[in-house]
């Protein structure tokens, strides 16, 4: 139980740090934190979606697509991820 709580705290911390660096356009640092979050919870939809957005924002569409597809795989009705998949498919 204790371990679970600690992990949850760490997960939130890493996601917040990832978002902080993303907002400051420090993409490599942001990715490092998002990846640490995914080590704790590989199926965390918020983190997977954030990584998709990060890659799309720096125009790395193949990688962005991989993450948006993972989101949709776990949550088929995720309308935002579906919208990004459509947008990237149209542009390519």
């Amino acid at each position: 139980m204790m371990n679970n709580n600690m992990n949850m705290n760490k997960l939130t911390e890493y996601i917040e740090a990832g978002k902080f660096y993303f907002l400051n356009q420090k993409y490599n640092e942001a990715l490092q934190y998002f990846m640490k979050a995914l080590e704790i919870e590989p199926d965390d939809i918020e983190t997977l979606y954030s990584v998709g957005i990060l890659y799309e924002s720096i125009n790395e569409f193949d990688k962005a697509m991989d993450y948006f597809k993972k989101v949709v795989g776990l949550s088929p009705d995720h309308s935002d991820a579906l919208a990004h998949i459509n947008k990237i498919s149209k542009n390519e």
Binding site: K19, F22, L23, N24, Q25, Y27, N28, E46, Y49, S50, I53, L54, E56, S57, I58, N59, E60, D80
Partner: peptide, 30 residues
């Protein structure tokens, strides 16, 4: 692209274009 957070706290970005950038403009990843 300028990163931002949407109303629900999810990461997002806004497309932006800088016309005739000056010599001091720093190039950024992406």
């Amino acid at each position: 692209n300028i990163p931002e957070l949407s109303e629900n706290g999810a990461t997002s970005f806004k497309e932006n274009i800088l016309l005739s950038p000056g010599p001091d403009e720093e190039i950024m990843k992406g």
